[in-house]
Design a protein around this nucleic acid. Structure first.
Length: 773
DNA sequence: CAGTGAGCGAGCTTCCGCTTGACTT
């Protein structure tokens, strides 16, 4: 029996706090929300003031039973869920689910997990803020209404199992619209002129690079300028030196951690969160789902000590950062190492790397500004208006740069500027070399997972706990794919002036190369355009910000929650019924040309199984012909020529081992068929180009791989085999799988053993079987 | 796991935000 029961959200937090509080306190975790709207139906009684139908979440029943038992015997119950809208609702749901009486129940909050903060919280309990709870309820009900009315509309009008929601649909919109911008982008080019001037620096002679303050639009203008420069004199007209400073970035939040881990370590958003979760659970870092840039007083003291000890006192500058993120709730600290004296940790490579990133960012945030000196040299050209400008930078005091430099998203950033050689106004310079290089304007960048999170956060859409799941949802639904794209080679012109002679040369560079970027799929584009056409309000980038304002008013007691919902819902529901009755099924169908052979119309659309091309429409008794689009192709951009190519499959490549080898494209992409067996092609194989030799190679490789999987097989019973799978050995019997009992060695199983296991055990459920149930 | 693209109908899918394990072939 315990005197005091404290309930927090996270089990790792519970463990830490228990250590602060002594033997009269038992600290338990409720693992987040314990109640939610029923999932069987809408879960909201629309006709009756939107009364929510809350149930104890099925996966939380066990926790609730256990907490209820502990609460029954406790003198006091302290609800210590997070201090934000969701946390307040969790506390209210706990009161409900555990049948807590008011006089025994206290609500406490703290922003940092330190002993003084906890003790202060215990000393200042309050009651549950019902206004805040109602604000959460409004948020929850709104999301349910939007999600559970829009999604079924998509099932009817586009395809089953699709989904839409306040957050995910806007995330998809960002990606679709960025792709449109890229498609409509018109590349232009201009000539950038750089002069190299030999200058004495001590005893050595170095080349000083300076860029012309004007770019030329055409080759002729650039050529003309270089010709005129052949006999020109170059004079230093001005040198200017200015001190500048650079400040460190604030400590990590969830979103900035995801961005930097992506840029610096190449981690996906999901991977970053998995590793961070493990660091948190092992006590190495503070909580990883936060929107706060605040550090506790304890952390600041540790930082001061660590920086002083390692770099010296002049490197310390304690700073208070304030968040600028829309809708931030700041229930936690920023993400930081628990102990700043640990510069590194034991563990595998990804844990070490992420930890060190967090350490550096935290430490740097409390360090002095870097102090620089920027020098600008202006060089005049006799007989020309234009000037050459050389820029240099010297670091006078490195400050935080000793530890950490934030990276930027654009890859084509300026190279780090170096110091300029000593130079005086009035000095005459000779020209070493001058080049005019054709440069192209850059299309807008595609989103990565991390830059999409950044954009969502800027718009105030989504929360630290949902960024990673949202990114994975829009990929799982097939709205968006994360892919690499091969670049193409692009020629560009370089004109050089050296020793009075002009030379022209064409070089090539790679352009359009993409790595792990988000691309919209055809279905993603179709769903987006459909929603945009009929639900512009929900798809508005400001929709979340606008409803958040109303949630705030509810939290302040200025607005009644179900009145707000009523005002949203009535027109929204009219939109739903209007669209349901007023539109037909959409498939994105459009004609892209006519078949040069038959003159039939060729059209593209999204069919039952995805994007496809169709020749003819079944008029005049002719059956239409169909072909699925290849990966990376889109009904928006495919040309007639590319579409006709797709009808060259299936191809018969020839004979192997007494059977035809046929290549075609199926449900799961391109494959080779030999006899009754199918073999998938590798990503690098093109089904239209592949040779018989390569196809046979694929067949033999797969056969070899299959053999490697077999641990045991029995001549008497061909359907029964012991196989080696991803999760270890298992028994396969007529397409059903069985676990091998503990203590038995797979290699030593006899036919009798296997038959016994099969007859006495239930087969394991496959993911498919589960879904059917 | 595989080469489809008629139409019908039963039964299913779906949201956002809090939290971690259980489980997989």
């Amino acid at each position: 029996m315990t005197k005091n029961l404290v309930i927090v959200e996270s089990p790792a937090k519970a463990k830490t706090i228990e250590g602060f509080l002594g033997k009269d306190f038992t600290v338990k975790s409720c693992f987040g929300h314990v109640m939610d709207l029923s999932k069987k139906d809408l879960g909201v009684d629309i006709g009756n003031g939107f009364v929510p139908k809350y149930i104890i979440s099925p996966e939380k029943k066990k926790v609730v039973t256990e907490l209820k038992k502990l609460a029954k015997d406790a003198e006091k119950i302290w609800l210590a869920s997070d201090e934000d809208r969701e946390g307040e609702a969790i506390a209210a749901h706990l009161v409900d689910a555990l049948d807590l009486e008011e006089q025994r129940t206290h609500r406490i909050v703290f922003h940092e997990i330190t002993k003084p903060a906890i003790l202060e919280a215990i000393g200042n309990p309050r009651s549950i803020d019902q206004n805040l709870v109602m604000a959460q309820q409004a948020r929850r009900v709104l999301d349910r209404l939007v999600g559970f009315e829009l999604s079924p509309l998509l099932w009817k009008k586009i395809r089953p199992s699709l989904s839409a929601g306040r957050v995910q649909s806007v995330a998809v919109r960002l990606i679709v619209e960025r792709e449109e911008e890229i498609r409509n982008f018109e590349v232009s080019s201009a000539f950038r002129v750089v002069g190299l001037f030999p200058v004495k620096s001590g005893k050595k002679s170095v080349m000083m690079a300076a860029e012309l303050n004007r770019r030329f639009n055409t080759r002729e203008e650039a050529l003309d300028f270089l010709q005129r420069s052949g006999g020109a004199r170059f004079t230093v007209e001005d040198t200017e030196t200015k001190p500048t400073r650079k400040s460190p970035a604030p400590p990590f939040t969830t979103s900035t951690l995801q961005q930097e881990a992506s840029r610096k370590l190449g981690f996906s958003v999901a991977n970053t969160m998995r590793v961070a979760q493990e660091l948190y659970e092992s006590g190495k870092i503070t909580y990883m789902r936060t929107d706060s840039v605040n550090l506790s007083g304890l952390a600041l003291n540790m930082a001061k000590k660590e920086i002083t000890g390692t770099f010296g006192e002049e490197y310390v500058k304690i700073r208070n950062y304030t968040t600028r993120t829309k809708g931030a709730q700041e229930a936690h600290e920023a993400i930081r190492p628990t102990y700043l004296s640990n510069r590194t940790i034991e563990g595998d490579r990804s844990h070490k790397r992420l930890y060190e990133l967090i350490w550096k960012r935290t430490i740097a945030s409390q360090m002095a500004d870097a102090e620089m000196e920027k020098t600008t040299v202006t060089i005049g050209i006799s007989g020309a208006e234009e000037k050459f400008i050389a820029r240099g930078e010297v670091i006078r005091f490195d400050g935080f740069l000793k530890v950490y430099m934030e990276s930027t998203d654009d890859t084509e950033g300026e190279e780090g500027e170096k110091a300029l050689p000593p130079i005086r106004t009035g000095e005459q310079l000779s020209l070493g070399e001058m080049t005019a290089e054709q440069r192209f304007t850059q299309q807008p960048p595609r989103y990565t997972e991390a830059t999409l999170v950044k954009k969502l956060e800027e718009l105030g859409i989504g929360r630290p706990s949902t960024f990673a799941p949202t990114i994975s949802t829009i990929q799982k639904r097939g709205y968006v794919v994360k892919e690499d794209r091969e670049g193409t080679l692009r020629p560009y012109l370089v004109i050089t002036l050296k020793e009075g002679r002009i030379a022209e040369e064409t070089r090539t560079e790679k352009t359009g190369f993409e790595k792990s970027k988000l691309f919209p799929t055809d279905i993603g584009t179709l769903v987006n355009n459909f929603l945009l056409q009929h639900f512009e309000n929900i798809m508005d980038y400001n929709f979340t910000a606008m409803v958040e304002e109303e949630f705030d008013e509810i939290a302040e007691g200025k607005l009644v929650w179900n009145k707000m919902i009523r005002e949203f819902y009535d027109p929204f529901h009219d939109q739903i019924t209007g669209t349901l009755e007023g539109t037909r099924k959409v498939s994105g169908e459009k004609v892209i040309g006519t078949d040069p052979k038959t003159g039939e119309r060729v059209l593209v659309k999204i069919g039952r199984y995805g994007p496809m091309v169709q020749i003819g429409e079944g008029e005049g008794g002719e059956k239409p012909r169909f072909a699925a689009l290849k990966k990376g192709q889109s009904i928006d951009t495919i040309t007639l020529e590319e579409a006709m190519e797709l009808f060259k499959l299936p191809r018969n490549l020839g004979q192997h081992d007494g059977g035809d080898v046929v290549v075609a494209t199926g449900r799961f992409g391109p494959y080779v068929k030999h006899g009754s067996a199918f073999y998938s092609l590798a990503k690098t194989d093109d089904p239209l180009e592949i040779s018989l030799e390569r196809a046979v190679e694929i067949i033999l490789l797969k056969e070899k791989e299959e053999k490697g999987k077999i641990i045991r097989e029995f001549a008497e019973e061909p359907g029964l085999r012991v196989l080696n799978g991803k999760y270890g050995a298992y028994i396969s019997f007529n397409k059903q799988n069985f676990r091998i009992p503990k203590g038995k060695k797979a290699e030593e199983l006899t036919l009798e053993d296997c038959r016994k296991i099969v007859s006495e055990n239930e087969p394991t459920k496959s993911a498919k079987g589960k879904r059917k149930k």
